[in-house]
Write a protein that binds this DNA or RNA. Structure first.
Lengths: 196, 196
DNA sequence: GTCTATACGAAGATAGAC
DNA sequence: GTCTATCTTCGTATAGAC
């Protein structure tokens, strides 16, 4: 698909392709051959770049995806209010869904459900990071820290669950509904204890 | 593991094993050999019972799991109040998580993220069924039908997402937090429009 | 760093005997 | 209904030349 020269070299291209394919098919269903074909990387360089084999590739792909997504979450949370930030966050998911014909999911979920332990641990840490970011935002907007924490866990869980829901039904409707509900919830959490 | 004579015969045993293995590893990572070893079914009878091959086995396993789970959801919702029903529902997930050392997830999620189209469609319909059941319960408890519907979508999404979250972190804490949040939300949805 | 070639096993699927 | 045997394809991984 891509097969063009990647400025960052074949290694980065392979990781990028691995992320894309893992999102589409899950960790177990992605082979080296798939990654090579998709990235256009040279056949003989797999074990040069990834001596640890598939485990290493999956781990690095998950780590890379987690860093990108966490940076995106942090950036999106730079909005005036938490409900708006949430909408923007869900908009990212939504566009990804529609662009990938509802077959492209979250790479962190794929890692969490995969069989590679290192990748699963990264997934667990990444969910935690997202909760921290969202919780901090809610607190900054005036929410009680305890309420903010549990609300953040709900937000992350519900968004990820809605993504799976939307994939199964090939429709972004569940995601939209969940975002509306979560926005209202965030507002109520903030309103209870407004800043000051 | 099981390998004992199944009263319902090898076919049912194979489906049961397929469900268990799919929950642990995902659709793509389960092979016929795995199912045979786990179920103790005779080697030569695979294509006799499942002429459609792996697709058929996965589809039937997903359908069977969906029926069992939907029946379980309906049964659990036979509780006096919606928040209590929700707690009971999450308790089912929770016990499954802990019994399977946080490696056994939801078969419907696995189907939704798998590569078998028929199974994914069943997953979509199953999520819809659960939403119907929960929505009906909320309405029966006095909630506004519109609010009940969107709340049900949130509940299903959040529970499934929390399950993935909990698997990634190997802890049921995220699930517990989400259940508390959802219970409070259900109460508020019911309280707004009490029966009468 | 990249190539070809290949070892080795496991996967899905089929054929034909019993 | 169940067996063994086999075909074919695909997967990971390695060896050794360039």
């Amino acid at each position: 698909m891509a097969r063009q020269q990647d400025p960052a070299g074949p290694r980065a291209a392979m990781i990028r392709s691995a992320i894309r394919l893992i999102r589409q098919r899950g960790v177990a269903a992605v082979s080296f051959a798939d990654v090579l074909a998709d990235s256009g990387a040279p056949r003989g360089s797999i074990y040069h770049h990834f001596p640890g084999g598939k485990s290493q590739l999956v781990e690095e792909a998950t780590r890379s995806a987690a860093e990108q997504l966490s940076a995106g979450v942090a950036r999106t949370l730079d909005a005036p209010d938490a409900p708006g930030a949430l909408r923007a966050l869900a908009g990212l998911w939504r566009r990804g869904l529609e662009a990938g014909d509802y077959a492209v999911g979250c790479p962190i979920v794929a890692a969490a459900l995969g069989t590679e332990r290192a990748a699963r641990d990264i997934a667990g840490a990444t969910f935690g990071t997202w909760c921290d970011l969202i919780s901090d935002k809610l607190v900054a907007d005036g929410a009680d820290p305890g309420r903010a924490r549990s609300t953040a866990v709900l937000v992350v869980s519900a968004l990820e669950g809605a993504l799976v829901f939307a994939q199964a039904q090939r429709s972004s409707a569940p995601l939209d509904v969940v975002v509306d509900e979560l926005s209202a919830l965030c507002r109520s959490v903030i309103d209870v204890a407004p800043r000051g």
